[in-house]
Every structure is written in C-alpha cells, then in structure tokens.
Amino acid sequence: MASAEEIVLNAPHRPHANAVEAFNVVLHDIKAEILKSRHHWDRHEPKMWARAAGIADADLVAFTAERDLVEVRSAPTSYGTIILGKIRLPAVQDAEGAGYVHVRIHDPPNRGTEDVRFHSIWTDEGTRNADGHPTTWRAIQTEDTPLEFFNE
C-alpha cells in the first residue's frame, strides 16, 4: 500500500474527461460509503458529519461527477494509479460555505476504467489532545481544505 512518502501527486487541477469517467465507475460506491460513514459516525461521534445535520440522505448524495467533481490529483504506483477527488455536496451550504468530500479511488494498470475501485473517504480526526484522542472531527471539508494524500 502506498504512503505519502512513496508517491508524487500531480498538482491539484480541474478534472479531465478520464477522471470524470473513472469516478463515474464508482459513483454508486462513493454515495453508499458516504451514507454508511454518516450513519456510523452519527452513532459514535455526530460531530464528524455535523455539517450534514438535517439533510436527508438522498439530498446529501445528490451529486454527479460531471457537475460536482471539482478537483483531482493523481499519482502512479507500481500497481496502478491513485486518484484523489474533491466532490462538492450541493446540499451542504452553511456558515463555512460549500461542503466537499475528499475521495480516494484506484485505477489498476492496463484495463481502462472497467476495474476502477473505490478506496475511501477522508474523515479527518484532526487535532488530538495530550492523551492522543481526537478533539475535532470532520468528514465534510471546506473549499479551502487542500486535497492531500490520505490512507484510510
């Protein structure tokens, strides 16, 4: 498995057609994982998805790759390409502005997009106290949150 030290991500940029196509292959999985993560965290730490409080599940995942995939980065590895994407959640608009999720997918080599796989959604357990326990939780990012490598 790759780590931030082992890969070189390209600069953040607007998605090209091939990135949109790759995200469309796993769009259903991304939406299902957002809802699964939201329901899990709502039972354990509601702060993680707090920016989506009061938003219906169907509205939360009412996004498309063509319209709402706003930024991507990628890096080659020996086992394919890691692709990070910043997806706007149109239903999330609050005092912090628009809401976004950061998603990681993987495209193995030599087979086109047919074998693209969803990897994960970034759920930031940011700042930690002296005991090592998180004091901040954030699954919905702001526009200013940089799209960086994550391995969750």
Rank of each mutant, 00 (worst) to 15 (best):
R14I: 09
P15I: 15
H16C: 03
V20R: 00
F23G: 04
F23R: 03
F23T: 07
N24P: 01
N24A: 09
N24M: 07
V25C: 06
L27A: 07
L27I: 02
I30W: 01
I30V: 13
L35C: 09
K36M: 12
W41Y: 15
E45S: 15
P46R: 10
K47M: 15
M48S: 14
W49P: 08
R51L: 01
R51E: 03
A53D: 02
G54T: 11
A56E: 11
A58E: 09
D59T: 02
D59Q: 11
L60H: 08
L60Y: 03
V61H: 00
A62T: 15
A62P: 14
T64C: 09
A65V: 11
R67E: 05
D68S: 08
L69Y: 01
E71A: 10
R73W: 06
P76R: 04
S78I: 13
Y79R: 10
Y79D: 13
G80Q: 05
G80H: 04
I83H: 14
G85E: 00
G85A: 10
G85H: 04
R88V: 08
A91L: 06
V92T: 09
Q93D: 04
Q93E: 05
D94C: 09
D94E: 04
D94H: 00
A98C: 05
A98T: 09
Y100P: 02
V101I: 06
H102T: 07
V103W: 00
R104T: 15
I105Y: 08
H106I: 04
D107F: 10
P108E: 02
N110V: 15
R111V: 11
R117F: 14
F118A: 09
S120G: 07
I121E: 08
T123F: 06
R128V: 00
R128D: 01
R128P: 00
R128F: 07
N129I: 08
N129R: 11
D131M: 12
D131C: 12
G132V: 02
P134K: 13
T135K: 11
T136R: 11
W137I: 02
T142A: 07
D144H: 01
D144V: 03
